[in-house]
Simulated assay, not measured.
Amino acid sequence: MRHERGLSSKARQWKRADIDRLCELWNKGAKTADIASRLGRSVKAVYVQIARQTKAGRAFPRAVHATEDDLLGRTFGMRTIIAATVPGAGRTAMWLTQCQCGAEHAVPGDKIMTGHRLACKACSNRDKGKRRIIANERKKQQKKFLSFAEIRARDRQIAARHAAAEAAFV
């Protein structure tokens, strides 16, 4: 059947023009099934190629395709989206954000949506300090190894409590 359709046993190779068209349609927000039918490919082949092109930076992750009206005023971590800005060098959607500390920065949309840049450097460093303090407190609270004398003293206390409980019971 493949032979009748002109396909070899291997998957059909992607031409540069097909990849360009695929990225163009995907970046405009076309559905995967529509792209597959336009290019004469299977939906699975389109998904695989989109994953490759997303890693290469030619196709946007889907989270970036949210409209400006959907994102304005939304808060991600400590950042609130204020406005859309001009796309960066990799044609990634850029958003002007304001951190809770008041600093404003242009941040790539995919970094915000995936949770990689939820605070400015000053705030994230401050959080690192807090996390370090909490980690140190947890380490102090962890059980340490007891010496033989400490084990004997603990056992004596437990035995004394048991003796007192038995005396109260009788």
Results as ranks from 00 to 15, higher is better:
R12K: 12
R12N: 13
Q13S: 13
W14I: 13
K15N: 14
A17F: 06
D18T: 02
D18P: 08
R21M: 14
R21H: 08
R21I: 13
R21A: 15
L22G: 00
E24G: 14
N27Q: 02
N27G: 06
K28T: 15
G29N: 08
G29V: 06
A30I: 05
T32W: 02
I35T: 06
L39S: 08
G40N: 08
G40R: 10
G40H: 05
R41E: 00
S42L: 07
K44Y: 13
K44P: 00
K44I: 14
V46E: 03
Q49T: 02
Q49P: 03
Q49M: 14
I50H: 02
R52I: 01
Q53E: 15
K55W: 03
A56M: 07
A56C: 07
G57L: 04
A59P: 03
R62D: 02
V64D: 11
V64K: 00
V64S: 10
V64C: 12
V64A: 04
H65G: 13
A66V: 03
A66E: 15
T67I: 13
E68S: 15
D69N: 15
D70E: 15
D70P: 07
L72Y: 06
L72F: 10
L72W: 05
L72V: 15
G73Y: 07
G73I: 02
F76T: 10
G77N: 00
M78V: 01
M78T: 12
R79D: 05
R79C: 07
T80W: 04
I81T: 01
I81K: 04
I81W: 04
T85K: 11
T85A: 14
V86K: 02
P87I: 00
P87Q: 00
A89V: 15
G90V: 06
G90I: 04
R91F: 07
R91A: 09
R91G: 00
T92L: 01
A93T: 15
A93Q: 08
M94I: 07
L96Y: 00
Q98Y: 05
C99K: 09
C101E: 05
C101Y: 00
G102P: 11
P108W: 00
M113Q: 08
M113G: 12
G115Q: 00
G115C: 05
H116N: 06
H116R: 09
H116S: 13
L118S: 09
L118D: 07
C120Y: 05
K121S: 06
K121C: 05
C123G: 02
S124K: 03
D127I: 04
D127A: 14
K128L: 09
G129F: 06
G129I: 08
